[in-house]
């Protein structure tokens, strides 16, 4: 397994090409994941989410420095949106992480959403496996930052950081969007800007209402000021990194690591089933033109979607028609 060996040795060309193949759903990429899977599970995966302009990339840049100081190797996956019009994407997160470019202990990769909802890209789960297998101690995943429903990150990370900034009017929005429930650590960025104290108060009230049990994770709220004051910024980020590591320890001690892993693998197996079964069937139907014919049957009211789907599923899954829905009849 030459490729697996090279990935584990951290060969950048092989790793970055494999991520590319995963994004493009190349069949050989799946084989590669099968091969490296036994070597995954060691990295601490950290999700960073928050609206656009919240300063996520600058924070990631700071965290890379902080973890490198602790001699941990770091992988970064930064996700930006694909244009729904052209299918192209402008990926600009790595701009803020340039100072680590020549550090061999850091690997940064930009991913486009390619139509995936939920703030991530479809390939992100597998890309995390790749960085994990290449031996990165810490994997930072930066979400798109549309501020809407970016909750998928919890299925992919151990620790989720929600970044908020004052004066963007997104506080209440964020609570509604359910982004608050996913946080393990809150960061109020640009905390020297007007409106920060109010935002902090709102957050703390909300956490108080949540009634965290005594042995539970206390849900820290941290503040970070201007990235232009390098010394102070560095100190704040160091303590953020400290809290992130503490959270991981908490997960281990409280046995929550297992339940998070279970949550993650459930999603993973469902995704894999979808890819191997549903995608297969769909591409098959598309290729032989049957999908089109099915659509016409609906237009002409010859049939209904469920009857057609049951026929297809029975054909492919070798079951009698209607069986899963016996109650219906």
């Amino acid at each position: 397994m030459e490729q697996t060996k090279k990935i584990r040795e951290g060969n950048i060309r092989i790793v970055s090409r494999l991520i590319r193949n995963l994004e493009d759903s190349e069949p050989e990429a799946r084989t590669a994941i099968k091969n490296i899977f036994p070597y995954t599970g060691k990295a601490h995966i950290i999700g960073i989410t928050g609206s656009a302009g919240a300063g996520k990339s600058t924070l990631v840049d700071g965290l890379i420095s902080a973890f490198r100081k602790k001699n941990k190797t770091v992988g970064v996956l930064a996700i930006d949106p694909t244009s729904p019009f052209s299918g192209g994407a402008l990926l600009g997160d790595r701009i803020r992480m340039q100072k680590h470019t020549e550090d061999p202990g850091v690997f940064v990769r930009s991913l486009a959403t390619r139509g995936a909802m939920g703030g991530l890209s479809k390939a992100v789960g597998d890309a995390i496996h790749v960085l994990d297998a290449m031996g990165k101690d810490i994997i930072l995943v930066e979400t798109v930052g549309t501020g809407q429903q970016e909750v998928d990150i919890i299925y992919n990370s151990h620790t989720v950081i929600v970044v908020l900034v004052p004066g963007m009017g997104d506080e209440i929005q964020a609570i509604k969007a359910g982004i608050m429930e996913i946080a393990d650590i809150f960061v109020v960025n640009k905390a020297d800007h007007p409106g920060a104290s109010q935002l902090l108060m709102e957050l703390k009230n909300m956490i108080n209402m949540a009634q965290i049990p005594e042995d539970g994770w206390p849900l820290p709220v941290m503040t970070v000021e201007s990235a232009f004051e390098p010394i102070k910024f560095g100190e704040k980020i160091d303590s953020l990194a400290q809290n992130i590591l503490k959270h991981y320890e908490y997960l281990v001690h409280s046995d929550q690591l297992k339940s998070r892993l279970h949550r993650k693998t459930m999603v993973e197996i469902k995704d894999a089933l979808r890819t191997c079964i549903l995608d297969q069937i769909l591409s098959d139907l598309e290729a032989n033109g049957e999908l089109d014919r099915l659509a016409y049957k609906l237009i002409s009211k010859e049939s209904d979607p469920y009857t057609l789907a049951e026929e297809i599923s029975s054909r492919y899954l070798k079951k009698r028609p209607g069986k899963p829905y016996q109650k219906k009849g």
Binding site: L90, G92, I95, Q98, F228, E229, P230
Partner: peptide, 10 residues
């Protein structure tokens, strides 16, 4: 005073 880097807005 620290160093400023291109935030690369496009």
């Amino acid at each position: 005073y620290g160093e400023y880097r291109d935030p690369g807005l496009y």
